[in-house]
Design a protein around this nucleic acid. Structure first.
Lengths: 226, 226
DNA sequence: GTGTACGTTAATGTATACATTAATTTTTGG
DNA sequence: CCAAAAATTAATGTATACATTAACGTACAC
């Protein structure tokens, strides 16, 4: 019999964790917003125990802070926070690029990088920014995924999570990301050529460009709480 | 009146968290060892709730895994795990080196790097490996600390925590770390000279050396559970 | 009218009670 | 004596009860 993976048999704490996390990522639960445990309890119709566990996990993940007597608060991301996050992603992803260049990748492996790149190009041609962002995300995920370093992947995903709603906010404000596709193509070529230093360098520059674009944009919208 | 910072007014969950963490780091609570919630509850004389919270936090931190029905288990660190950790530290710390080279550091800032280096040399001359390790740790901590990037620091500390007991295990087995001091001096000089690429490169190579020494050693002791 | 002390409220930290179910033991049929 | 089923145990996930105390409001002194 088929196992129904959709019908959830998950612990309530896990369900609450995912639900809250999801709302933070897509900005339904907004930056700076505070909510009491009680409100979460009532919203989910579960008891305080699993709600608290979910909150503890989210705090460790850097998405919220627990403010005794004032509930939990979605951590706002400042320009400085975003700079911190980008520096970390730059370091880890360019390390990933380096690692891949030193590795033997299969043709399938390359496809997980090439396919998103193609999707990005396609989306850009059709002015579908959301689709572009999704494909870009897939590319960067593939990059760290292929290293096989689970911890590296986890950390990148963690900070990706913190930055997610900010990236989404800027998506329609930034210039069309026309250069990104070429950077990705160059990176894949460097990896194929086994040129680790070049691969790392290309991706570093790619990320630095992205960081500057983003930070400049955020300076303009400094008054918006993200 | 003086605030007594030693007398603990901390939440029980925090106390339990710190206590368990401490025991894992110094290898009293050994790799692979399992212990039931009940045992922790009895040991600390507190209820299950704060113990559970401590466990959830430690799991997020990568130090333990929660095995339903079997309590918690200190995650053993394999050679492969250590390789993962070193690759991350290499990426983040050499990024830190790069950042510092691009920054204006005060004389005091430099001292937080130079002093541990001197302490390392001293300790090495006196064959005090523990003191050497402590100073080395101080140097690496200063490196990430001076970047001002709190997230970067947190991640480095997290993986440092995972690797801590392994490093301690190998401390007396490895060859005397005579080259480390020079690497650190070279790094500080590159930072002072504002040569970001060189600084990153020096630290990268330093870490790669360390990684190889460590992994070779661990291969020899593959049968030991860390 | 204003500031302070007091009392009240309510949110959380912690303990405990309860429900569920994996694991183990016992029983039973062969 | 062995294997499968049934009963029991025990560890956890969850709910709830209780204790503490920060935050707030009120009243009172001046």
């Amino acid at each position: 019999m088929l196992k129904d993976t959709t019908s959830e048999n998950l612990p309530l704490a896990e369900i609450a964790y995912r639900a809250i996390r999801e709302e933070i990522l897509n900005n339904q639960f907004k930056a700076g917003e505070q909510v009491l445990e009680k409100a979460l309890v009532e919203r989910f119709g579960i008891s305080r125990t699993p709600v608290r566990e979910a909150c503890v996990r989210l705090e460790k993940e850097g998405l919220i802070e627990i403010k005794p007597r004032h509930g939990i608060r979605v951590k706002p991301i400042s320009v400085e926070d975003m700079a911190e996050i980008y520096d970390i992603l730059t370091a880890l992803e360019s390390e990933a690029a380096r690692i891949l260049a030193e590795k033997q990748l299969t043709e399938d492996d390359y496809q997980t990088l090439v396919a998103p790149t193609a999707a990005m190009e396609q989306a850009l041609a059709n002015d579908q920014l959301e689709a572009w962002a999704e494909a870009d995300e897939a590319f960067h995920l593939a990059l760290v995924n292929l290293t096989g370093n689970q911890r590296l992947k986890q950390v990148v995903l963690q900070f990706w999570g913190q930055a997610h709603r900010v990236r989404y906010f800027t998506l329609h404000l930034r210039p069309k990301p026309t250069g990104s596709t070429q950077d990705h193509i160059d990176l894949v070529n460097a990896i194929k050529a086994g040129n680790a230093n070049l691969a790392a360098e290309i991706h570093r520059n790619h990320r630095i460009k992205g960081k500057h674009t983003l930070l400049n944009l955020l300076e303009t919208y400094r008054f918006v709480q993200l």
